[in-house]
Write a protein that binds this DNA or RNA. Sequence first.
RNA 1: GGAGGGAUGGCCGAGUGGACGAAGGCGCCUGUCUUGAAAACAGGUUAGGUGCAAGCCUACGAGGGUUCGAAUCCCUCUCCCUCCGCCA
Length: 422
Amino acid sequence: MLDIRLIRENPDLVRDALKKRQADTEIVDKILTLDENRREILGEVEKLKAERNAVSKEIGRMKDAESRQEKIAAMRTVGDQIKSLDDDLRDVDAELTSTMATLPNIPSDATPYGVDESENVVIKTVGKIPEFDFNPQAHWDLGPALDIIDFERGVKMTGSRFYVLSGAGARLQRALIAYMLDLHIKQGYTEKYTPFMVKKETVYGAGQLPKFADNLYKDHEEDLYMVPTAEVPLTGYHAGEILEDADLPKAYTAYTPCFRREKMSAGRDVRGIKRGHQFDKVEMYMFVKPEDSDAAFEKMMADAEETVALLGLPYRILQLCTGDLGFGATMTYDIEVWAAGCNEWLEVSSVSNVTDFQARRANIRYKPEGSKKNKFVHTLNGSGMGLPRVLIAVMENYQQEDGSIIIPEVLRPWMGGVKVIK
RNA sequence: GGAGGGAUGGCCGAGUGGACGAAGGCGCCUGUCUUGAAAACAGGUUAGGUGCAAGCCUACGAGGGUUCGAAUCCCUCUCCCUCCGCCA
């Protein structure tokens, strides 16, 4: 959610932001009209309410029955007017809010302009793309051969794009989760275990609703949503709260499964375990003072990078351009790892500075030291990281000619002595 | 799933139709006193909207209703607690 004042006072800034995102700008005019309309009605109804309040107090003190009745009758009319204006106000308010809710955040000046993902900027590439003296296999061949990924049974039980990890495969994923959480704790994050199902308001607060309604799984009986990312419960964690200046920044990490309905046709992009409807992810999340969010962004980015670097995987960092930026983000870096069998870069992490966009929706503020006025915090989120794709990269990059997979050194503490999956 | 009880400011808690944004206490802040602190005393201490401002409006779990007027009466919902049932 953007600040209505910003839109009111600086509509061109907002229009410009929408253009950079390749989005239509007429929504701005709609908002301006609704806002003007709202304030006009508000002024009117508040004047009437002030009158009613004053006269009602008078009535309470009046002794003379006749003039008292007169006042009561007069106020009955005013009451009707108020009711009708209040109805109008509610309608305009609701429309204004729902329209505002569809407006994306304003890209940072540091975000490069671009039309779509083809214009994202590669910031750096680290590590060498491994070379094999044999033909490296993709995980969808390696996995079933080692009996660590079972596609058929996943499909049998649930449907396409579901799978079962088995034996050392399941354990390897669990090792990755434990490795990531323990590393993030060392980096200064506090671990949270959150609900995996949340209320509509919680999803809305994180900015996933209304825009991504079609991509969410929902329990209609209880009106609960399955989380599409831990970002949702971690944003909701402090929703409606006023945080203490001294308690900031707050840095959290959480492991959750993520559930996404997104319907995509079968093909290269969804092959194997690249893009299931259910996947695991470890997330980093921060609540910071506005003046600290740039530095927090750099830290989170460094933390994400360390996570992939310690695994010994070749990776590259991309800065998203304005046309590819997520709905709530002002600036985003993606980390992609090289997958030797798929022969492509896979996105495993996305780190974003959301500024006050989620905080405004979820109403998360803090009391600045020595100031009376509460301010919205800035929030940042970053994956650290998406499990299936890291699993793919480990499997494919650490494979050997006989189809076995060497376990990276950093994961061995959680592998119970297993050094090679064969 | 059934029965009952409850929800008021940072916390405790009073308030059953009229000067109540809300008594009292605790906590916190400021001042007086003090070398300093404590104590005592005095004052202050919710958030949002709107307006150039003075101010005005809104909010006592949420939403609706009754009324000239609602923390207070009525309806619906949500959450919490106790007991029964069921259950990892």
